[in-house]
Write a protein that binds this DNA or RNA. Structure first.
Length: 199
DNA sequence: GAATAGATTGTCT
DNA sequence: GACAATCTATTCT
């Protein structure tokens, strides 16, 4: 078993952590079994100065509260009335930074992921999007605020990088004005599990 | 392969 | 009451 990422890894701005998360392995153990995926696509969100972030302008509500935790916690939110999205909280407490995990490459427990998603084994649609990652790994509101450094069910491990790091503007944040142009989306070049084609 | 519409609910204005 | 850090099925080229 690879080493779990230490707290210090997360105590940096989201834009620094996001590219470093590529290649790392996200592990979730449940009663159904363990599932793990190698991260191939991320996006950085840095409140309060980022209009695309939920914590923009210092917004602090029941939903965004986890973004204000110390780096190394989980920020999970419900989206479009039917999907969950998993983020890794970054930076120090009260600095609402987070990195959205947009896509992973199935690594362990693929049979379980296939069952949860109701798909054919080997399908790239298994985990090539934020909602799909959560569905495949079984991440929901129950993981909100979980400590990734101490918890026994959800954490991140060291893992290998297989391609170069590429970057692009973030997906579906056109409403964020000039901030939508920031190239804070990072992905592993060549991975077939990346959600959208590069621009 | 690309484009489009529909599903469905928490959150904020 | 509008809309969202999305996904899927369907309908095209």
């Amino acid at each position: 078993m690879a080493a779990r990422l230490p707290r210090a890894f997360y105590l940096r701005p989201a834009r620094a952590v996001a590219p470093d998360l590529l290649g790392k392995v996200l592990v979730h153990r449940t009663r159904e079994g363990a599932a793990a995926g190698r991260i191939v696509e991320t996006e950085a969100y840095e409140g309060p100065g980022d209009r695309a972030a939920h914590s923009w302008g210092g917004r602090r509500t029941a939903r965004t509260e986890a973004m204000y935790l110390e780096g190394g916690h989980a920020y999970v939110y419900f989206l479009y009335g039917m999907h969950w999205a998993f983020n890794v909280v970054c930076a120090r407490a009260d600095e609402p930074h987070a990195v959205l995990i947009r896509a992973v490459e199935p690594l362990r427990g693929e049979a379980l992921m296939v069952r949860r998603r109701g798909m054919e084994p080997g399908a790239r649609e298994l985990t090539n999007g934020p909602g799909k990652v959560c569905a495949a790994l079984g991440i929901t509101q129950a993981q909100y605020g979980a400590d990734l450094c101490r918890g026994k069910s959800l954490w991140l491990e060291e893992g290998p990088m297989r391609g170069r790091v590429a970057r692009s503007p973030r997906i579906n944040v056109a409403y964020a004005g000039v901030h939508a142009r920031r190239t804070w989306r990072f992905y592993e070049e060549g991975s077939r599990f990346v959600s959208a084609a590069p621009r």
